[in-house]
């Protein structure tokens, strides 16, 4: 246990799992949302611990910030108490045990934590880190065709350059979600309301 990354990783994940269980256990929705905010923040620290800096600050901003605000806003319209009921659900338990068992069985041959010989590390990752992908070899006398001066952050380079279309259409996803929320939540126009009332009278 000399590796501090691994030690902090285990400690953080144990705390995160306990927080997640507490968030799912409580019948108080406001408390559950707060616990999920704490869980997101723990994950943000965990991502920083695993050297995923960009994911870390996105998780802190989106998971612990924006998602919590969205949930709290929704709770003001839906109420904060969940109906009491049994916590034990045999069908759910069976499904979870079978699915979880299969998943753990499937992860048995995954590379160990931090394995430098893992396929994900040795296959294409060095190309992306060297920022060689997309470079065209124009021969000995042709000009070297690349993206010019690369940004030092490889995550940004991959996101904005190699996966540029993907990032562009990600904004389309957010726009679509925004349009959906507006269409669902906007009050009916007076003419539409009259039409609905007319339909109900006819029926």
């Amino acid at each position: 246990m000399s590796d501090p990354v691994l030690l902090i990783n285990v400690i953080l994940l144990v705390i995160a799992v306990v927080t997640a269980i507490a968030a799912m256990w409580t019948r108080d929705l406001l408390g559950a949302v707060m616990l999920m905010g704490i869980y997101s923040l723990l994950l943000a620290i965990e991502w920083a611990n695993l050297f995923a800096m960009d994911v870390s600050y996105t998780e802190a901003a989106v998971g612990a910030g924006a998602a919590t605000i969205l949930l709290l806003t929704a709770l003001t319209r839906t109420g904060i108490r969940e109906k009491a009921g049994p916590n034990f659900h045999p069908t759910a338990l069976l499904t979870v045990l079978v699915t979880g068992g299969l998943l753990i069985y499937g992860t048995a041959d995954m590379p160990r934590f931090g394995d430098p010989q893992a396929p994900a590390t040795v296959n294409v990752a060095p190309e992306y880190i060297a920022q060689n992908v997309g470079k065209v070899d124009a021969g000995d006398d042709g000009p070297e065709n690349d993206f010019g001066d690369h940004v030092p952050n490889t995550v940004t380079a991959v996101l904005a350059s190699y996966r540029g279309y993907d990032t562009m259409f990600e904004t389309a996803v957010i726009f679509t979600a925004g349009v959906c929320v507006i269409l669902i939540l906007r009050p009916l126009s007076p003419s539409a309301r009259r039409e609905t009332a007319q339909n109900q009278e006819d029926a």
């Binding site: 050297f51 995923a52 800096m53 931090g114 590390t121 880190i129 030092p152 952050n153 490889t154 995550v155």
Partner: peptide, 10 residues
């Protein structure tokens, strides 16, 4: 994650 790896900022 990679042993001894740092954040992917060159």
């Amino acid at each position: 994650v990679r042993d001894g790896g740092s954040a992917p900022i060159l």
